[in-house]
Amino acid sequence: MEKSQIITRACNDWERDWTLGTLTKKNQTIRLRNEIRYYRSIPWQFEVLFPRMLDASVWDESDHWMKLEYYNYLDLGQYLLGRSDWHLDYSDWLSIMQHLRSILDRWANHDKMPGFSEDAWEVYVAETVIENNAFREQDIAPLLFEGDWILINDRPTQTFKAIWPEVEAYLEKEIILTYQEGMIHGDCNFSNILYGGNVLRFINPRGSFGTMFGVRGDPRYDVAKLYHSVDVGYEFFTNDIFAVTKAENPSESWKWDYGKQYNPNIWRDKTHALSAFIEVFFEGENPVSKKDITLIEGLICVSECPHHHENPDRQIAMYLAGLQLLNKAMQL
């Protein structure tokens, strides 16, 4: 099993004990401290869905660590990218999506209550603006921030500054004011969901939502994170399965796609996973709002960009996808 299944991008030190079947994560970030808080807050009836936390320390503000039970499972991202000897067909993906929907629904309804609008505003509005500005200040692709329109894959697309007033108004009215707080994972993409023998287990929870720490937050955020993996394909970006063509002037089109590595087998698996997600979450019983989830996915794409500074092309591809999603959501 690759270390990426357990170790997040934020974790810079780890030890694995093959004899005892444990893994210890160490670093100095708030992210790991929040993850420890999350594990300590998991309701007892859902503890089985996560590796057991055997020990942890956050006493030393300069160094946090946690020791977890080690699962020798592949994550769903590896299945999506064809890195398993076991091929998942449409019926397999449909079963997985139904299982995920059942889990997320139980989490969402656990001690469900009206959420604090300030927390939703912090995540959906404040963080997006801060991260967009951070990416712009890196000065990697200044043409992306000029004017009101750019071309992406030869289609006119509003820039962030042009579409943001409409997005923010919708967020305030339809997302923030309707925020119902429940249990969430907080980083529910395929890379953080282990799968083996029809068993799903979750790793690397975020541990915060706005000013809240622990397991509480907006369940729509988890659905959008999951959609992010099957729609534009978060794991395709992080595994460098994409290609970018940069515009040299405002009249040229920015272009991105999945590149030469996007073979028919990967296309088949992604198509099956996306179709299964749509059937279960958008078309099944108690469907969630496609507009809301697409919009939140767009916010996630934009907000991720500055954190992938080790690969400027990846940042650009994510940002282009984010702008496309924001524009698409406002047209739904």
Results as ranks from 00 to 15, higher is better:
residue 118 E to L: 12
residue 21 G to S: 03
residue 255 K to D: 05
residue 79 Y to L: 07
residue 327 N to A: 06
residue 126 A to G: 03
residue 112 K to H: 07
residue 151 L to K: 14
residue 88 L to N: 04
residue 112 K to C: 06
residue 310 E to F: 13
residue 222 D to E: 08
residue 64 H to C: 08
residue 249 N to F: 03
residue 208 S to W: 11
residue 211 T to N: 15
residue 103 I to A: 02
residue 211 T to W: 13
residue 44 W to L: 11
residue 308 H to T: 03
residue 299 L to E: 01
residue 326 L to I: 01
residue 23 L to M: 10
residue 218 D to Q: 09
residue 175 I to C: 09
residue 11 C to M: 10
residue 101 R to W: 08
residue 243 A to E: 15
residue 199 V to C: 10
residue 284 G to F: 08
residue 62 S to C: 07
residue 119 D to I: 03
residue 91 S to W: 10
residue 4 S to V: 12
residue 331 Q to G: 09
residue 157 T to V: 10
residue 226 L to R: 04
residue 215 V to G: 00
residue 115 G to W: 11
residue 184 I to V: 15
residue 252 E to Q: 15
residue 309 H to R: 08
residue 318 M to R: 14
residue 28 Q to L: 04
residue 291 K to F: 07
residue 319 Y to S: 02
residue 189 N to F: 13
residue 269 D to W: 02
residue 294 T to G: 00
residue 224 A to T: 08
residue 13 D to W: 11
residue 143 L to T: 08
residue 177 L to M: 12
residue 146 E to D: 11
residue 216 R to D: 07
residue 271 T to C: 06
residue 258 Y to W: 13
residue 277 F to Y: 11
residue 74 L to G: 02
residue 111 D to V: 06
residue 257 D to K: 05
residue 13 D to L: 14
residue 281 F to G: 03
residue 35 E to N: 05
residue 23 L to A: 12
residue 72 N to I: 00
residue 207 G to W: 05
residue 317 A to S: 11
residue 69 E to F: 05
residue 253 S to W: 07
residue 311 N to C: 10
